[in-house]
Amino acid sequence: MTTMLVTGGTGTLGRLVAERLRADGHEVRVLSRSARPYAVDLRKGGPGLDTAMAGVDTVVHCASSQNGGDEEAAEHLIAAARKAGVRHLVYISIVGVDLVPLGYYKAKLAVERMVEESGIGWTVLRATQFHDLVARVLGGLSKVPVMLVPAGVRDQPVEVAEVADRLAELAQAAPAGRVEDMGGPEVRTFDSLARTYLRATGRRRLVVNVPLWGKAYRGMRSGGLLAPERAVGKGTFEEYLGRVV
Protein backbone atom coordinates (compact mmCIF):
# COMPACT_ATOMS: atom_id res chain seq x y z
CA MET A 1 0.00 0.00 0.00
CA THR A 2 1.31 3.44 -0.99
CA THR A 3 0.70 6.68 0.87
CA MET A 4 -0.58 9.40 -1.45
CA LEU A 5 -1.47 13.03 -0.89
CA VAL A 6 -4.20 14.73 -2.94
CA THR A 7 -4.21 18.53 -2.79
CA GLY A 8 -7.57 20.14 -3.32
CA GLY A 9 -8.94 16.80 -2.21
CA THR A 10 -12.35 18.19 -1.26
CA GLY A 11 -12.90 19.83 -4.65
CA THR A 12 -14.80 18.62 -7.71
CA LEU A 13 -11.85 16.73 -9.18
CA GLY A 14 -9.70 16.05 -6.13
CA ARG A 15 -12.50 14.35 -4.20
CA LEU A 16 -13.01 11.84 -7.01
CA VAL A 17 -9.28 11.20 -7.36
CA ALA A 18 -9.01 10.49 -3.63
CA GLU A 19 -11.97 8.09 -3.80
CA ARG A 20 -10.45 6.13 -6.67
CA LEU A 21 -7.04 5.85 -5.04
CA ARG A 22 -8.59 4.61 -1.80
CA ALA A 23 -10.66 2.09 -3.73
CA ASP A 24 -7.41 0.77 -5.19
CA GLY A 25 -6.05 0.18 -1.69
CA HIS A 26 -3.84 3.20 -1.09
CA GLU A 27 -3.64 5.32 2.01
CA VAL A 28 -4.82 8.75 0.86
CA ARG A 29 -4.33 12.02 2.69
CA VAL A 30 -6.62 14.86 1.62
CA LEU A 31 -5.10 18.31 1.87
CA SER A 32 -7.20 21.46 1.64
CA ARG A 33 -7.69 24.63 3.64
CA SER A 34 -10.46 23.03 5.71
CA ALA A 35 -9.98 19.24 5.62
CA ARG A 36 -8.84 17.81 8.95
CA PRO A 37 -6.34 16.55 9.93
CA TYR A 38 -4.42 18.08 7.01
CA ALA A 39 -5.93 21.56 6.83
CA VAL A 40 -3.27 23.65 5.09
CA ASP A 41 -3.39 26.79 2.97
CA LEU A 42 -0.80 25.99 0.33
CA ARG A 43 -0.36 29.66 -0.49
CA LYS A 44 1.07 30.15 3.00
CA GLY A 45 2.78 26.80 3.59
CA GLY A 46 3.89 26.19 7.14
CA PRO A 47 4.68 23.22 9.40
CA GLY A 48 1.29 21.61 8.76
CA LEU A 49 2.37 20.98 5.18
CA ASP A 50 5.48 19.11 6.32
CA THR A 51 3.31 17.00 8.61
CA ALA A 52 0.94 16.15 5.77
CA MET A 53 3.84 15.27 3.46
CA ALA A 54 5.76 13.01 5.87
CA GLY A 55 5.98 9.47 4.50
CA VAL A 56 4.16 10.32 1.26
CA ASP A 57 5.27 8.58 -1.93
CA THR A 58 3.06 10.33 -4.51
CA VAL A 59 1.40 13.75 -4.62
CA VAL A 60 -1.54 14.50 -6.94
CA HIS A 61 -1.78 18.28 -7.16
CA CYS A 62 -5.39 19.26 -7.93
CA ALA A 63 -5.58 22.44 -5.83
CA SER A 64 -5.98 25.59 -7.92
CA SER A 65 -7.62 29.00 -7.70
CA GLN A 66 -8.70 31.48 -10.35
CA ASN A 67 -8.18 34.17 -7.72
CA GLY A 68 -4.42 33.80 -7.83
CA GLY A 69 -1.76 32.19 -5.66
CA ASP A 70 -1.15 29.01 -7.68
CA GLU A 71 2.55 29.69 -8.15
CA GLU A 72 3.11 30.42 -4.45
CA ALA A 73 1.19 27.26 -3.57
CA ALA A 74 3.28 25.18 -5.96
CA GLU A 75 6.50 26.61 -4.56
CA HIS A 76 5.54 25.57 -1.03
CA LEU A 77 4.27 22.17 -2.16
CA ILE A 78 7.39 21.33 -4.15
CA ALA A 79 9.71 22.40 -1.33
CA ALA A 80 7.85 20.18 1.14
CA ALA A 81 7.79 17.29 -1.33
CA ARG A 82 11.54 17.49 -1.86
CA LYS A 83 12.13 17.59 1.89
CA ALA A 84 9.94 14.51 2.39
CA GLY A 85 11.56 12.53 -0.42
CA VAL A 86 8.38 12.28 -2.51
CA ARG A 87 8.92 10.04 -5.55
CA HIS A 88 6.18 11.22 -7.91
CA LEU A 89 4.38 14.54 -8.41
CA VAL A 90 1.28 14.47 -10.64
CA TYR A 91 -0.21 17.76 -11.84
CA ILE A 92 -3.49 18.45 -13.60
CA SER A 93 -3.35 21.31 -16.07
CA ILE A 94 -5.57 22.65 -18.86
CA VAL A 95 -5.44 22.28 -22.63
CA GLY A 96 -4.49 25.65 -24.08
CA VAL A 97 -2.46 27.12 -21.22
CA ASP A 98 0.30 27.83 -23.72
CA LEU A 99 -2.03 29.16 -26.43
CA VAL A 100 -4.69 31.23 -24.64
CA PRO A 101 -3.03 34.02 -22.60
CA LEU A 102 -5.55 34.37 -19.79
CA GLY A 103 -4.07 35.24 -16.41
CA TYR A 104 -5.20 31.95 -14.85
CA TYR A 105 -3.80 29.97 -17.76
CA LYS A 106 -0.45 31.76 -17.50
CA ALA A 107 -0.28 30.71 -13.85
CA LYS A 108 -1.11 27.08 -14.72
CA LEU A 109 1.64 27.08 -17.35
CA ALA A 110 4.11 28.53 -14.85
CA VAL A 111 3.23 25.75 -12.38
CA GLU A 112 3.77 23.15 -15.11
CA ARG A 113 7.31 24.47 -15.53
CA MET A 114 7.90 24.46 -11.79
CA VAL A 115 6.82 20.82 -11.62
CA GLU A 116 9.08 19.91 -14.53
CA GLU A 117 12.05 21.63 -12.89
CA SER A 118 11.32 20.35 -9.38
CA GLY A 119 13.86 17.54 -9.40
CA ILE A 120 11.05 15.13 -8.49
CA GLY A 121 9.70 12.50 -10.85
CA TRP A 122 6.72 14.16 -12.49
CA THR A 123 3.65 13.67 -14.64
CA VAL A 124 1.52 16.45 -16.17
CA LEU A 125 -1.89 15.85 -17.71
CA ARG A 126 -3.74 18.59 -19.57
CA ALA A 127 -7.52 18.23 -19.89
CA THR A 128 -10.17 20.30 -21.63
CA GLN A 129 -12.88 22.18 -19.71
CA PHE A 130 -15.05 20.17 -17.31
CA HIS A 131 -18.78 20.00 -18.02
CA ASP A 132 -19.66 21.71 -14.75
CA LEU A 133 -17.49 24.74 -15.56
CA VAL A 134 -19.14 25.17 -18.96
CA ALA A 135 -22.56 24.86 -17.33
CA ARG A 136 -21.69 27.49 -14.70
CA VAL A 137 -20.53 29.92 -17.38
CA LEU A 138 -23.67 29.36 -19.43
CA GLY A 139 -25.84 29.70 -16.34
CA GLY A 140 -24.36 33.11 -15.70
CA LEU A 141 -24.80 34.21 -19.30
CA SER A 142 -28.43 33.07 -19.32
CA LYS A 143 -29.53 35.32 -16.45
CA VAL A 144 -30.54 38.05 -18.92
CA PRO A 145 -33.09 37.81 -21.76
CA VAL A 146 -30.43 37.99 -24.49
CA MET A 147 -27.65 35.44 -24.06
CA LEU A 148 -24.41 36.85 -25.47
CA VAL A 149 -21.78 34.23 -26.34
CA PRO A 150 -18.30 34.68 -27.87
CA ALA A 151 -18.49 34.31 -31.63
CA GLY A 152 -16.40 31.61 -33.26
CA VAL A 153 -15.29 29.95 -30.01
CA ARG A 154 -15.39 26.17 -29.77
CA ASP A 155 -15.06 24.00 -26.71
CA GLN A 156 -14.62 20.30 -25.98
CA PRO A 157 -16.03 19.67 -22.49
CA VAL A 158 -15.01 16.51 -20.67
CA GLU A 159 -16.52 14.50 -17.83
CA VAL A 160 -14.64 15.21 -14.58
CA ALA A 161 -15.04 11.61 -13.38
CA GLU A 162 -13.15 10.40 -16.45
CA VAL A 163 -10.32 12.83 -15.76
CA ALA A 164 -10.22 11.59 -12.17
CA ASP A 165 -9.90 8.01 -13.42
CA ARG A 166 -7.00 9.00 -15.64
CA LEU A 167 -5.22 10.92 -12.87
CA ALA A 168 -5.58 7.99 -10.48
CA GLU A 169 -4.14 5.70 -13.15
CA LEU A 170 -1.18 8.03 -13.70
CA ALA A 171 -0.56 8.41 -9.96
CA GLN A 172 -0.17 4.65 -9.61
CA ALA A 173 2.28 4.39 -12.50
CA ALA A 174 5.86 5.57 -12.87
CA PRO A 175 6.53 9.27 -13.57
CA ALA A 176 5.77 9.82 -17.26
CA GLY A 177 6.47 13.51 -17.93
CA ARG A 178 3.96 15.34 -20.11
CA VAL A 179 1.39 12.74 -21.14
CA GLU A 180 -1.12 13.00 -23.97
CA ASP A 181 -3.89 15.53 -23.49
CA MET A 182 -7.40 14.44 -22.56
CA GLY A 183 -10.43 15.92 -24.29
CA GLY A 184 -14.15 15.36 -24.29
CA PRO A 185 -15.90 13.38 -27.03
CA GLU A 186 -17.22 16.35 -29.04
CA VAL A 187 -15.90 19.65 -30.33
CA ARG A 188 -18.83 22.07 -30.03
CA THR A 189 -19.38 25.72 -30.88
CA PHE A 190 -20.16 27.81 -27.84
CA ASP A 191 -23.54 28.83 -29.21
CA SER A 192 -24.39 25.14 -29.68
CA LEU A 193 -23.53 24.47 -26.05
CA ALA A 194 -25.62 27.47 -25.04
CA ARG A 195 -28.70 26.19 -26.89
CA THR A 196 -28.21 22.74 -25.37
CA TYR A 197 -28.08 24.32 -21.92
CA LEU A 198 -31.24 26.34 -22.55
CA ARG A 199 -33.17 23.29 -23.72
CA ALA A 200 -32.07 21.25 -20.70
CA THR A 201 -33.01 24.00 -18.23
CA GLY A 202 -36.25 24.98 -19.96
CA ARG A 203 -35.19 28.59 -20.45
CA ARG A 204 -36.11 30.71 -23.45
CA ARG A 205 -33.36 33.10 -24.45
CA LEU A 206 -32.18 34.72 -27.64
CA VAL A 207 -28.61 33.53 -28.27
CA VAL A 208 -26.44 36.14 -29.97
CA ASN A 209 -22.84 35.55 -31.11
CA VAL A 210 -20.69 38.54 -30.20
CA PRO A 211 -17.16 39.05 -31.57
CA LEU A 212 -14.64 39.98 -28.90
CA TRP A 213 -11.05 41.17 -29.08
CA GLY A 214 -7.63 40.52 -27.63
CA LYS A 215 -5.00 37.78 -27.70
CA ALA A 216 -6.95 35.40 -25.44
CA TYR A 217 -10.01 35.58 -27.69
CA ARG A 218 -7.86 34.99 -30.79
CA GLY A 219 -6.33 31.98 -29.08
CA MET A 220 -9.79 30.56 -28.37
CA ARG A 221 -11.04 31.24 -31.91
CA SER A 222 -8.01 29.45 -33.34
CA GLY A 223 -8.82 26.30 -31.35
CA GLY A 224 -6.54 26.81 -28.36
CA LEU A 225 -9.04 25.14 -26.01
CA LEU A 226 -9.30 22.00 -28.11
CA ALA A 227 -7.61 18.60 -28.35
CA PRO A 228 -9.60 17.03 -31.22
CA GLU A 229 -6.98 14.34 -31.79
CA ARG A 230 -7.41 13.33 -28.13
CA ALA A 231 -11.21 13.10 -27.95
CA VAL A 232 -10.97 10.15 -25.58
CA GLY A 233 -13.74 11.14 -23.16
CA LYS A 234 -17.07 9.35 -23.39
CA GLY A 235 -19.58 11.45 -21.46
CA THR A 236 -21.32 14.20 -23.44
CA PHE A 237 -22.54 17.60 -22.29
CA GLU A 238 -26.14 16.48 -22.81
CA GLU A 239 -25.58 13.46 -20.57
CA TYR A 240 -24.07 15.66 -17.88
CA LEU A 241 -27.01 18.07 -17.98
CA GLY A 242 -29.43 15.13 -17.87
CA ARG A 243 -27.95 14.15 -14.50
CA VAL A 244 -27.72 17.55 -12.83
CA VAL A 245 -30.61 19.63 -14.14
Rank of each mutant, 00 (worst) to 15 (best):
I120H: 06
T128G: 14
V111L: 15
V100Q: 00
R113T: 07
H131T: 04
Y105C: 04
H131K: 02
V111A: 15
P101Q: 07
V115D: 08
I120R: 06
V100R: 01
E117S: 06
V100D: 00
T128W: 12
G119A: 13
K106L: 14
W122S: 07
F130S: 02
K108F: 06
M114K: 15
T123P: 02
L102C: 11
E116C: 14
Q129F: 08
L109I: 00
K106P: 00
G103L: 07
G103P: 11
L102G: 12
E116L: 15
T123D: 01
L109K: 03
A110N: 14
M114G: 13
G121C: 08
K108H: 14
P101K: 04
V115A: 13
A127L: 05
A127Q: 04
R126K: 12
L125C: 10
Q129H: 10
E116D: 15
T123G: 00
H131N: 07
V100I: 05
I120C: 10
A127V: 00
P101S: 09
E117N: 08
R126P: 07
E112Q: 08
E116G: 15
Y105E: 01
K108V: 08
G121L: 10
Y104D: 00
Y105Q: 03
E117L: 05
E117Y: 03
R113K: 06
V124G: 07
A127C: 13
S118L: 11
R126Q: 12
G103W: 00
L109F: 03
V124I: 15
V124Q: 06
V100N: 00
R113A: 13
E112N: 13
A110M: 13
A127D: 03
R126T: 05
L109Y: 01
V115L: 09
K108D: 08
Q129R: 05
Q129G: 06
G119M: 12
